[in-house]
């Protein structure tokens, strides 16, 4: 089967950021995303909800260019103030053209 090589961007963040992050992902060129509720602990240990230790994990499959834009945005706007972790990993995707905008 034909597979496309794309980048899987994974973001772990404070739940309060969900709307803003997902909105920005779409604006930066992602065609979709998945959000999961998670528990965990990080270096900041910042908990903003009334229930401690909760967070969100957002995953999105994007092209290299979009991935680069997301990483730049994260570095400039998200990391300074919020508990956010972002990483990129290569992914081999079925129907890869679905994830390319335009």
């Amino acid at each position: 089967m034909e597979l496309h090589t794309l980048t899987l961007i994974t973001i772990v963040a404070e739940p309060v950021l969900e709307e803003r992050l997902t909105r920005r992902l779409l604006e930066l060129g992602a065609t979709g995303y998945t959000v999961m509720d998670i528990r965990g602990r990080g270096t900041r240990g910042i908990r903003t909800g009334d229930i401690p230790g909760q967070g969100i994990r957002i995953e999105t499959l994007v092209t290299d260019e979009v991935a680069e834009a997301i990483l730049e945005e994260a570095t400039a706007s998200w990391f300074p103030h919020y508990a956010v972790v972002v990483w990129a990993s290569p992914a081999r995707v079925v129907r890869g053209d679905k994830y390319v905008e335009g």
Partner: peptide
């Protein structure tokens, strides 16, 4: 808490 976190991210929520 969420309103403050969004608007004043430099404020310490703890």
């Amino acid at each position: 808490p969420p309103a403050v976190r969004m608007t004043l991210p430099a404020a310490n929520p703890t």
